[in-house]
Design a protein around this nucleic acid. Sequence first.
DNA 1: CCACAACCTGACCAATCGGTCAATAAGATT
DNA 2: AATCTTATTGACCGATTGGTCAGGTTGTGG
Lengths: 215, 215
Amino acid sequence: MTQTNQIVRLKNGRRTEIRHQNETLILQAAEKVFAEAGFGGATMQLIADLAGLPKANLHYYFATKEDLYRRVVHNIFEIWLHAADVFEEAPGPVEGIGAYIDAKMEISRRHPAGSKVWASEVMHGAPVIQDYLETTLREWTSGRAALIQQWIDEGKMRAVNPEHLLYMLWATTQHYADFGHQIETLNGGAPLTERQWKEAKETVKQIILRGIGAI
Amino acid sequence: MTQTNQIVRLKNGRRTEIRHQNETLILQAAEKVFAEAGFGGATMQLIADLAGLPKANLHYYFATKEDLYRRVVHNIFEIWLHAADVFEEAPGPVEGIGAYIDAKMEISRRHPAGSKVWASEVMHGAPVIQDYLETTLREWTSGRAALIQQWIDEGKMRAVNPEHLLYMLWATTQHYADFGHQIETLNGGAPLTERQWKEAKETVKQIILRGIGAI
DNA sequence: CCACAACCTGACCAATCGGTCAATAAGATT
DNA sequence: AATCTTATTGACCGATTGGTCAGGTTGTGG
């Protein structure tokens, strides 16, 4: 089975490459349009125009608008989830939470569109990824909450509710993507500079790490 | 002019009452639908059904979908803005920021739909309230930032970037409305209880006030 | 070179959208 | 009771939507 698939893939290298390239192109355009207009406001025509393809071509690769949307959301969810790998290996809250804040701030900076799509999906009741919330995310959360509790028991930080601390981390870091337009407006219409991003990260880390008594 | 208007209003009491009642009814339904479906996903028919009125009746009170949406957003913005009156009268960060967190958490709890509409509007580039961001909100923000800076100068709290502190306050409190569905899912599918809301408020206040060195 | 499969796309369609309008009902004014 | 204004609504309309499909092109294996 695996061998056959590999042979086919080698022989059809050109074909699968075309498919992969076009799917990526469409997914990137879709992420942008969904972020800017929301699921309801986005149209297949807009996505097609941004991708530089005829609309019918989109439906060749993605059967429905919802299928395309689902793929976009799943891609973001993966990035979102793996940003927390730094959490596990850390010896304590200073390193673990500090690195997590850095990682999530970087996601907000590098993938603002994806973050908005994710926020929008959850805000509208998670019609597409409800099962993920109930399985993967729930496990992830209780795992990290347990780790935080362990740090508390070991005297590495003050006793705070781990769940609410996690919500604070999500909220604060995600804010820089979701409300990026508001921040930019309040910043005189200009995006945050390299220095300002650094200051944002430092401020958030300082307040939270000090707030939980880790430093 | 004023006297004439008053006479007219008294004489037309019944009429203006009908108008006021229907506008309120429509605005409440619209807030809910816009929050659940976004501007693009919301339809006048859905709003009409939720309000229990024929669609044509909506257009009698609100010329266009955008007019209706604009009114919903403005209403939220007013609530949002006046929540910060507590800020000004406070002698220091413990009272000022503490009360502000309480007020904003209460808004997230009592007006989750409105908060989502506001978040959605900003997330999509504030097409309707961009002027408000550039005028009212900008003044409001620089005013509060100056007050925070004053507290810092008076030694009432540590030196942190006031803007980023404000963003943290907005993000954290608003999160309980915008991501309420996610929180509810992680809470076993049940809304936060009275006790959990209280714990959320306390955790947020503790971490932030301690994080800025105010307690 | 042929046959087959994957890829591409202009033209088209039913459904739904925001919005209009003429006709009617209800309330207020004289 | 006559008259005027406001409120109500079913029927309707042009525009746009997601999605389909037939027919053509391109790449691949034999």
